[in-house]
Amino acid sequence: MDRKIRVLVAKPGLDGHDRGAKVIARALRDDGMEVIYTGLRQTPEQIVQAAIQEDVDVVALSILSGAHNHLFPRVTELLKEKGAEDVLVIGGGVIPEADYGFLMSKGIAAVFGPGTPTKATIDFIREHVRQK
């Protein structure tokens, strides 16, 4: 049986705008991936623990509140602490381009801003998970 790509879609922080997260979850499913959806208000600790227990290939974080510079790096740090730095971490939401560089330096593989086609995210995942 072929191993499906497993993706954890999580919303760290407190914002409740999950339209984007749900659309991307569906798009990934329709592309044949297994998506674990953990819903709103997730702490970095919860996200990382879930990523490990669920043995995911990718963690996709969505945030619209502006707390990304605080919360995204926490996720990558914790993954590293748990020895799971091979998990691909990507982010999306309302994130100013000026922050992309900082986030990437903290181990976020890619940031997808508003208006990104779901296809672009899917292609990125397929390409980078295969490389692993």
Partner: peptide
């Protein structure tokens, strides 16, 4: 063959 697994949500 894809799936959205949402049960975990309630046990998070």
């Amino acid at each position: 063959g894809g799936a959205i697994l949402g049960d975990r949500l309630r046990m998070q």
